[in-house]
Write a protein that binds this DNA or RNA. Structure first.
Lengths: 194, 194
DNA sequence: CATAATAAAGGACATTTGTCCCGATAACAT
DNA sequence: ATGTTATCGGGACAAATGTCCTTTATTATG
């Protein structure tokens, strides 16, 4: 569920170290709680996370949020918007302090047009993302909440991630009330670490 | 919702016409109701639809089906499985008679490694698919069925598509009973064209 | 320590969705 | 035409989920 990608990370690092002018790629830091991207706004940079964890979420017009995925080290941000030339599809918020390699748009565009290695890595990442997103869509539509929740808890334990109950609910597409009920039902009483 | 892609189609057509040996790409036909891919089985070819419409669906272990998307002219099939080297993620069934350009796996793999044009087109298609899939996941989780159903009906009218009620329900992730109720509620009485 | 302020948990009821089943309608054979 | 069978729609009830609000727990503060 947390996507991480070592290939990407070393690729970005190498480009960063090799660049002559030092402004195509810069390292930026975001503190916990700040936004890397804001849904609806224009994209300004394409980023690779080299430290920390972020959450990707939609804010729907009815005020609800839906968390699409959690991103870890090596994940790329903003590439979809760049490719399709659209404003930001969703918001991305730092769940921990985060550091990124931040690429200028013209430079990243150039890379996509010329660098086969990047193309192939992106294809790999996209393929995996499609697999995850679509499997989850199917799963969450067709199974009970309890089912999906068990998987989420299991994952959280594996990754020592302090996901707040609010985020869990947003990930599962349910209310906190329903989340509490399900937690009782499956007998686990996770303390809120938010 | 039906993805079509002219770039891909002309690209495939040109490769097909140009090939010296005539076995890297062949044209195949599938009759309505037959399967282009079967979930869980090994992938044998990568295909481009040049005629007809297909539905892509998961069969979950609890017996339910979830329709991920409808594919139209120019759409590619099997590329995800090839890239990630996995067995078929979902089944793909011909909703009408279908013709495809069918690529051998080694040939398609070679193209991906060497052809920048294909890479860029695939990136475009993947990006759009991710946008659609994730928007829909969010939408269907956070809005009422009525809302999603209205969009589906609207789409169906635009495309003269005879989607059965069973397929509509599978697309929305609900039962037929709920679909009927929603249809009543929004006042449209669609005849079953299955 | 006591008390107020804040956040989390859960009860009660309403709404939505699913399951089961029956009756109406249509298609079909005799 | 008559009876038979399959299909579809919807009623009735059960289960799941959401909304609202009260109760409980936690934290902060004098």
């Amino acid at each position: 569920m947390i996507r991480t990608n070592e290939d990407f990370l070393s690729y970005a690092k190498q480009l960063y170290d090799d660049q002559s002018r030092k402004d195509d790629i810069v390292i930026k830091h975001y503190s916990k709680g700040s936004l890397l991207l804001m849904q609806g706004e224009e994209l300004t940079r394409v980023m690779f996370i080299c430290r920390g964890i972020a959450k990707v979420f939609f804010s729907e017009e009815n005020g609800k949020q839906f968390i699409l995925e959690f991103l870890g080290k090596g994940e790329v941000i903003g590439e979809i918007e760049l490719l399709r030339n659209i404003s930001c599809l969703c918001s991305i918020e730092a769940m921990t302090d985060i550091s990124v390699y931040s690429f200028s748009l013209p430079y990243f565009r150039l890379l996509i047009q010329t660098d086969m290695q990047l193309n192939n890595m992106l294809l790999q990442v996209f393929a995996e993302r499609i697999i995850n997103t679509s499997s989850r869509a199917s799963y969450q539509q067709l199974y009970t909440v309890d089912h999906s929740l068990s998987k989420l808890l299991e994952f959280q334990e594996n990754h020592q991630l302090g996901i707040t109950k609010e985020d869990m609910a947003a990930y599962l597409g349910i209310t906190i009330r329903t989340l509490n009920r399900s937690l009782q039902k499956i007998g686990k009483d996770i303390k809120n670490i938010g």
